[in-house]
Structures are given as C-alpha cells and as structure tokens.
C-alpha cells in the first residue's frame, strides 16, 4: 500500500505527531479533494507500522495519552522497507473502471438509452477537465510544480477517458449487437467460433 510508504517517507524527514502526518500527506498529494485520508486510517496504519517494527512511538507521556499527542519516528527497518519500495514499480489499475462497469451493466440490464449514459459521462468528464484546467491555471509553476504535475496527470487521464468515450460511442451499436459475455459453463469446452476478438 502506497499510504504506508508515504507515511514512512514523511517520518524519514522528521518525527511527527499523527495529525501532523495527516496534514503533511494531504499537502503533498495536492489537497484533500484529490486524495482524502481519514484520521482513523492514519492511526490504524501507524499501528501496523509500529507492529512491523518500521516505526517507533517516541511518546514520553506513555500509553494512556491521546494518539494525537504521540510522536512517531522511523526505525532502521523502516528505512530499508522504504528503500525497497523505492526500488519496486507501481502497477496501474486501469482495467478496473467504474464507468465500464456501469455501461456493461446497462447493456446487461437491457437499458435502451445507452447514448444518454455516454453523454452524461462525457459531460461529467468535461466538467472535471474544466475544473482541473482551471485549478491548474491558478497554480504557480515556480513553487507548486509538483502539484501541477499531478494535475497534468489527472488532465491527461481525463482527456484519455474522453477520447475513450468517443471510441465507445462509435462502436456502441456493435457492442449491443454482440452477445452479452456469459460465465463459462464448460470451462474445458471449445471456444465459440463465431466470437472473434476484434
């Protein structure tokens, strides 16, 4: 999980309180609107990190204190775990697309106005793109370049999503004419000949 390692990274900068960590996290990912993390999630993660021995709680006030008052610091094991993370790749998760799920569900459910679904989605994406563009336009490239790059990622992906919608739109009728994908009843049977991959 990325959040774990992000917290480790922030602690490697200096020891912090739990609420400090949350604020710092929020700042580097570009605000709560872009990646919201609840305080409970922060503390749960810190607990796990402590259990794994990557982090120690340096509280001189003891166990009974409010979690927010405790100061956390990274351990040598934590450092090596962080390095291991830096040294590995991050897989993308593009196949798991919520809109695709909605569209295919609509097909399965026999929804007539698929066009409408597409249009609504496109409008949503365009609004998102508009907002992202506006947001990006307000940032100062001299000091907020990291955020700008993050926004660029978002803009590019949104743009790609919009183009993908155009693709879908062109072939919408064809999708409807093809049989709905069925669970494979006979896993060892021959594949159906009439369904050719496009």
């Amino acid at each position: 999980m990325s959040i774990r390692h992000a917290l480790l990274g922030l602690l490697s900068q200096r020891p912090r309180h739990g609420y400090e960590l949350r604020a710092a996290f929020s700042a580097v990912v570009g605000g709560e609107e872009s990646w919201e993390v609840k305080p409970a999630q922060i503390y749960m993660t810190l607990e796990r990190l402590t259990e794994a021995g990557w982090v120690v709680c340096e509280s001189n006030l003891g166990e009974g204190q409010e979690p927010a008052r405790r100061i956390y610091a990274i351990t040598p094991q934590g450092h090596s775990a962080l390095q291991a993370w830096f040294g590995s790749g991050v897989p993308s998760e593009h196949q798991r697309d919520p809109f695709f799920l909605k569209l295919i569900t609509a097909v399965v459910a026999g929804e007539k106005d698929l066009q409408r679904i597409l249009q609504v989605q496109r409008a949503t994406l365009y609004r998102e793109l508009h907002a992202l563009t506006a947001l990006r336009g307000r940032l100062d490239a001299r000091v907020e370049l990291a955020q700008i790059l993050l926004l660029d990622k978002a803009i590019m992906h949104t743009e790609a999503d919009i183009r993908w919608l155009d693709f879908i739109e062109i072939r919408l009728d064809e999708i409807c004419r093809q049989p709905i994908p069925q669970p494979e009843l006979r896993p060892r049977g021959r594949p159906k000949k009439e369904i050719q991959p496009e």
């Binding site: 365009y126 793109l129 508009h130 992202l132 563009t133 803009i155 743009e159 919009i162 183009r163």
Partner: peptide
Amino acid sequence: DPRIAAYADRI
C-alpha cells in the same frame, strides 16, 4: 482537442 475544448464555458 478535448483538452482545449475544456477551457470553454460550453461545448
């Protein structure tokens, strides 16, 4: 270009 169109008020 969707990206350019996104600058508009209305598409």
